[in-house]
Design a protein around this nucleic acid. Sequence first.
RNA 1: GCGCCCUUAGCUCAAUUGGCAGAGCAAAUGACUCUUAAUCAUUAGGUUGUAGGUUCGAUUCCUACAGGGCGCACCA
Length: 496
Amino acid sequence: MLRARRAKLDQLAERGIAPFAYRYERTHDARSAIAALGEGAGDAPGPEVRVAGRLVAWRAHGKTAFAHLADRSGRLQLYFRQDELGEERYAALDLLDLGDVIGVAGPVFRTRTGEATVRVASYELLAKSLRPLPFGKEEVVDGRAVLHSGFADAEQRSRQRYADLAVHPDVRDLFVARSRMVSAIRRFLDGRDFIEVETPVLQPLYGGAAARPFVTHHEALDMPLYLRIADELYLKRLIVGGLERVYEIGHDFRNEGVDRTHNPEFTMLEFYQAYADYNDMMTVVEALLVSTADAVRADASLADASLAERVPVFRPPFPRVQWVPALNSALGADAMSLDMSALRAAGERVGVEHVATLSRPKVLDALFQALVEAQLDAPTFVIDYPRELSPLAKPKRGDPSLTERFELFARGKEMANAFSELNDPIDQRTRFEAQAALRAAGDQEASGVDEDYLRAMEYGMPPMGGVGIGIDRLFMYLSGTTHIRDVILFPTMRPE
RNA sequence: GCGCCCUUAGCUCAAUUGGCAGAGCAAAUGACUCUUAAUCAUUAGGUUGUAGGUUCGAUUCCUACAGGGCGCACCA
C-alpha cells in the first residue's frame, strides 16, 4: 500500500507536479466558504474561494468526481469536472489519495441535494500522503455525522495522536476546548491582577506535595536534580518578594502509577494571593469555575454541539461541608475520639484494604474518602481538615486541632486543594524536620528540610491563600471525559 | 501490585466441537458527468502478538512472556 503511493510520487515527478508545496493562499476556510454562499443562492454560482485541507472522502464518477476536504473549521464538498479542468489535469486526479493535503480554487455553488460545494476550477497538491490514514466512513444521520469503523484502538489513538486528530473532528474539538479553558483561566487571573510566572521544573529538593519524584542528574554541576512534584514552595518565595499575586500553569511530575485519572506528568495550576485566607480563596475558586465553564460552553468553534451541552452549570456558592462533623455523621460516632482498634474496625466495615497496617491519619483519611468524598457529586467544599492530615496549612482560628484547608470535590474526585498558607518559619521548620525523619525512615514521598525556603520565610512571609487545581481533571469534569489519557495530547506510554 | 478480559489483512471485525483463515472498508485495475457509508465488476493483501507445549492436525486447548483494556488497590 505504501508502495502504491510511492509509485504515484514517481508519476507526479514525470508530470512535473511537486508533491510537497511551500504555501497556499487561502481566502476562506470550510465554514466561511459555506457561509459565503448564503442561504437562498439557488443554482447561481456564489463567490470564488480558495480553500485548503485534507482530502477525506472521494467519489469518482468517470468524468466527474465529488470529494470532501476537511480543515480545522469543518468539511467542504468539492466537485471536479473533466470539462472544467481539462483532460490532463482531470487525469492527474488519479494520483491523489485520501489523506493528501490539497488547495482548491473555484466558485461555491449549491448541488441538487442542497450542499454548498466548490466547483473546482484549479487545484494544487500541497502534501502527498504516503501512508494511508485510518479513515472511517462518515454517514449523515439526522444532520449529524456518524462515524463508521474508523480508528478505534485506544492505544493506537493515544500513540498516534496526529492520526487520531486527523480523522476525528470531535477529538480536535475536545483539545480546542481544553485550550479555551486554559485561556479563560489566564484571563480570569490576569483580570484580578495576578501575574503569570515560571518557576524551576528542575529542583535540587522536591516539596509542596507528597509524591515520589523523578530523579535526574546534572553533569556539569555533578548533582542530582528532581523534576518538580509541585510549584508551591517557589511560588510562595515570590510572595515573600512582594509580587503579591502569582500563578503558574505547568507540568508537575510524579513517579507513580498510571491509570484513568493519573498520568506521570500532568498540568497543574497553582495561584497564591497575599493577604487572603482560605475563605477568600473559596470565593475565587467558585468564580474561576463559573468563568472557565462559560468559556468552554461558549466556544463557537465547536463542531460537536454535544460537548457544549455536557459542560456543567456551576451555581455558587457551593456547599461547605466540615470534615469532622461530616465524617462523624456518616460514621455514626465521634471519629476523633475513637481509638485505633475502633477506627480499624470501622475501616474494615467500609472495605478499606490493609487497614491493619495504616497509620491513624491514613485510616481517618480512608474512612473519609469512602464515606463522604465518594458521595459528593455536585461541587462541594470540604473544609477544616484535621491537623494531622494537613501538614502545610495554618491552624484553624479557634480550634487548633483543625487546619484552614479546603478541598473541592465533584463527581467523587478532588478538583482543588487549598490552604490558608503556613507563614510561621519556626512552625515550618518543625514540620520539615518531621518530614525529614519520615524520609530517613524510608518514606520516599516525604521531602527534606528546604533551608532556602525557610530563609525566605524568615524574611517575613505575608499571610496568603493558595490554591492548586489539576487542569487535566478539571477539564475532564467540564467535558465529561472519563479517561485522563483522552484529555492529554501525548499521554505517557510504554515505547512500542 | 491483585483479578478478569483482549491481541486474526492498513482499519473495523468474523471463523460452528480442534479440521483448507473470511467479510466490509481502505488499496490496485476497469466502467460511470450531481454524488455523499456512491454504485458495479475484477485483483491483490496473512509467520492469527512472541516463545514453547499437547495433538495426525491449533486462530481455537495448556504454559510463559510482551503489549493493551476494564475493575480494585495505591496516589494527603
